[in-house]
Amino acid sequence: MTSSTPTRTFDELVAEAAAVPVDGWDFSWLDGRATEARPPWGYARAMGERVARASAVLDLQTGGGEIFARALEPLALEPLALEPLALEPLALEPLALEPLALEPPTLEPRALVPPATAPTRPVTAVATEGWPPNTVRAAALLRPLGATVVAAADVPSLPFADGAFDLVVSRHPVTAWWTEIARVLRPGGTYFSQEVGPASVFELVEFFLGPRTPEERAVRDPERAAHAARAAGLDVVDLRTAALRTEFHDIGAVVYFLRKVVWMVPGFTVERYRDRLAELHRRIEAEGPFVATTTRFLIEAVKTGRRPV
């Protein structure tokens, strides 16, 4: 039986994906067109738990602010002030057949108090972002939640005082500047991050660029990150890795992904890679989804009193 849904052409799929805005870090446009398994540690939830305990938090390279907003939204509402219930004493008349002297019951009002362990909004919440379209998007999303967005390029010089934060977070930073992260953390403060791992989605990268060198495949190695963190004076308390199945179901998903994640195929444009895109389109049509492996690692490090190496 043939499908009643007409097959979209290569040109239609590519034109649609090339016209979609790619600001922010929301990948919902790929729903139904690409899939990626999620790491088992649940970064957004775990980050939210840490933000709820922090007094001053910095989100580095926030993108469009979507993940940071998810952490701040539950904390944005002030505790509800509940007045004690005003309960009037119940007036009971004595029964007519056998009079009884009944005292009205005394009902004590109960004050409903939020539990002492309820999460609170950080006194200071700051996010940095270097790409202007994302900076605008993040500001619109985060400012109503009490966060300040600072336009800051991805360079090893953060515009903050020493020891300004007790929590620094970052999801998929382009670069982790460990010395600066350690500098802006207070003693006992924590850095918590999910990062892109080595050779992530390299099946797709190598389809367009050819084989990568061993050195290129080793970039973003989690053990190297842990070594750099320790050299900056941080103690690594958690380091986990995950290899995740990723599928691209049509060529439009590939175009959108490479336009959004610009470091995968630097200088990517539809015009420049049209022939390779057409070849990949034919392959997907004949064989099914293009499969790649996404790699991620989770790192948590605490600033101690020891001097950097």
Rank of each mutant, 00 (worst) to 15 (best):
32 G>D: 10
190 T>K: 01
83 E>D: 08
161 A>Q: 09
109 P>Q: 00
136 V>L: 14
192 F>T: 00
247 E>T: 14
181 I>K: 02
206 E>A: 07
123 V>N: 07
245 R>E: 13
219 V>T: 03
60 L>R: 03
10 F>I: 01
300 E>D: 07
309 V>S: 11
195 E>S: 11
7 T>L: 14
230 R>Y: 06
27 F>R: 11
199 A>G: 06
110 R>E: 12
294 T>D: 13
110 R>I: 13
131 W>L: 07
264 M>I: 08
73 E>I: 04
6 P>E: 11
194 Q>R: 00
36 E>P: 04
163 G>H: 02
63 G>W: 04
251 I>T: 09
137 R>M: 13
170 S>G: 09
18 A>L: 01
242 A>S: 13
303 K>G: 09
95 L>F: 05
291 V>W: 08
156 P>F: 02
303 K>E: 04
41 W>K: 06
70 R>T: 04
45 R>G: 02
308 P>E: 05
104 P>Q: 10
11 D>C: 01
85 L>V: 07
32 G>V: 10
136 V>W: 00
218 A>E: 09
263 W>K: 09
208 F>S: 01
34 A>T: 08
238 D>F: 08
22 V>D: 04
182 A>P: 01
25 W>S: 12
309 V>P: 15
296 R>K: 12
35 T>I: 14
189 G>C: 12
38 R>E: 15
204 L>E: 11
199 A>M: 10
41 W>T: 09
64 G>F: 01
131 W>M: 03
53 R>K: 15
77 L>N: 06
114 P>G: 14
298 L>N: 03
9 T>L: 09
246 T>L: 13
259 R>W: 12
131 W>D: 00
191 Y>G: 04
263 W>E: 09
14 V>H: 10
276 R>T: 12
286 A>H: 12
201 V>Q: 10
43 Y>P: 00
236 V>I: 08
230 R>C: 07
176 A>G: 04
217 R>F: 03
201 V>H: 13
127 A>F: 01
4 S>T: 14
32 G>S: 13
85 L>H: 04
211 P>E: 04
95 L>M: 08
46 A>R: 15
223 E>G: 07
153 A>W: 02
292 A>G: 08
125 A>P: 09
286 A>W: 07
117 T>W: 15
141 L>R: 15
126 V>G: 05
299 I>C: 07
272 R>D: 07
263 W>I: 11
40 P>T: 06
223 E>Y: 09
257 F>E: 02
302 V>C: 05
169 V>F: 00
174 V>P: 09
132 P>A: 02
153 A>K: 09
227 H>F: 06
208 F>N: 00
184 V>W: 01
78 E>Q: 06
201 V>E: 13
290 F>S: 00
249 H>V: 05
